[in-house]
Amino acid sequence: MLFAHDTDCSLIAAAALVNTAGRDGEGLPDVTALAEFFTAHGWTGRHERTEAELTSVRELRPRLRRVWYADEDEVVTIVNGLLRESAALPQLIRHDDEPYHLHAVPRDAPLATRMAVEAAMALADLVRTGELSRLRLCGHPDCDNVLVDLSKNRSRRFCDAGCGNRAAVTAYRARKAAARP
């Protein structure tokens, strides 16, 4: 394990949240989709299931996306802003049969605030350990998704939207075409 479990989960959830605003359309089209995202990424605590909550989560995405394009100083500015605006106060918490881990806002804080702070805390770990290079853009030329490379050998190149498979098929077809007389 490279990072603490909650850091890994928060980084993966942040990338997934950013990718819901891709060029293929709105990945969070309604409150039901947000509830599915909430469950899929193991969020707990307050979840209002309202249009206002959905709007506030959507509004977080461009700010988080900026992190994947930013240099270290800009990442620090974004992280510090998210933590300051949320009045983050890190504390060790244990809940839902999980071991102690950091929460920096109460579980009853608005969902978008908790998402912002969890992402900021995980990004702070990347900055502190000099691992910002693990934030990557998908290597497929037709994809603008982001990803977090949590592999030991830092070899992940493609997002979770099937781009690795598409690249492999394209390469296979190119090899087959080149082998034909």
Score class of each variant (00 low, 15 high):
Glu85Gly: 15
Leu135Asp: 00
Ala167Trp: 03
Arg23Met: 09
Ser151Gly: 12
Met1Lys: 05
Asp96Ala: 13
Gly22Arg: 09
Ser86Asp: 12
Ala21Glu: 03
Ala70Cys: 04
Arg58Met: 02
Arg166Cys: 02
Arg94Leu: 12
Lys176Gln: 12
Ser56Cys: 07
Ser151Lys: 06
His140Trp: 04
His103Glu: 06
Gly27Asp: 04
Pro62Met: 06
Ala52Met: 07
Ala15Thr: 08
Glu59Lys: 09
Gly164Asn: 02
Ala14Gln: 14
Ala174Asn: 07
Ala33Tyr: 01
Val18Tyr: 07
Lys176Thr: 01
Thr113Asn: 11
Ile78Ala: 05
Val31Cys: 10
Val127Glu: 01
Phe158Pro: 02
Val117Lys: 01
Ala35Ile: 04
Asn145Val: 01
Ala124Leu: 12
Ala122Glu: 09
Asp142Pro: 06
Asp160Pro: 11
Val31Pro: 02
Ile12Ser: 09
His5Ile: 14
Asn145Trp: 11
Ala112Tyr: 10
Ala122His: 11
Asn145Ser: 03
Gly162Asn: 00
Leu132Trp: 12
Arg58Trp: 02
Thr7Phe: 15
Leu2Ala: 14
Ser86Leu: 14
Met1Gly: 12
Arg156Gly: 00
Ala16Lys: 13
Gly22Lys: 01
Ala35Gln: 02
Trp68Ser: 04
Ile78Glu: 10
Asp125Phe: 10
Leu137Cys: 06
Thr44Leu: 03
Ala87Thr: 12
Val127His: 09
Trp43Ser: 02
His101Cys: 08
Gly139Met: 00
Ala88Arg: 14
His5Val: 13
Gly22Asn: 08
Val117Glu: 14
Glu53Pro: 00
Val105Arg: 06
Ala177Leu: 05
Phe3Pro: 15
Glu118Ile: 10
Pro62Cys: 05
Leu28Tyr: 03
Pro181Asp: 05
Asp144Gln: 07
Cys163Ser: 07
Phe158Asn: 03
Val76Arg: 15
Ala109Tyr: 03
Phe158Met: 10
Cys143Arg: 01
Met121Tyr: 08
Asp142Tyr: 06
Cys143Tyr: 05
Ala168Cys: 04
Gly27Thr: 07
Ala179Leu: 11
Leu17Thr: 06
Thr113Gly: 12
Cys138Arg: 08
Ser56Trp: 11
Leu147His: 02
Gly81Ile: 13
Ala174Pro: 03
Val79Met: 09
Ser10Val: 03
Leu2Glu: 15
Gly81Val: 11
Leu150Met: 08
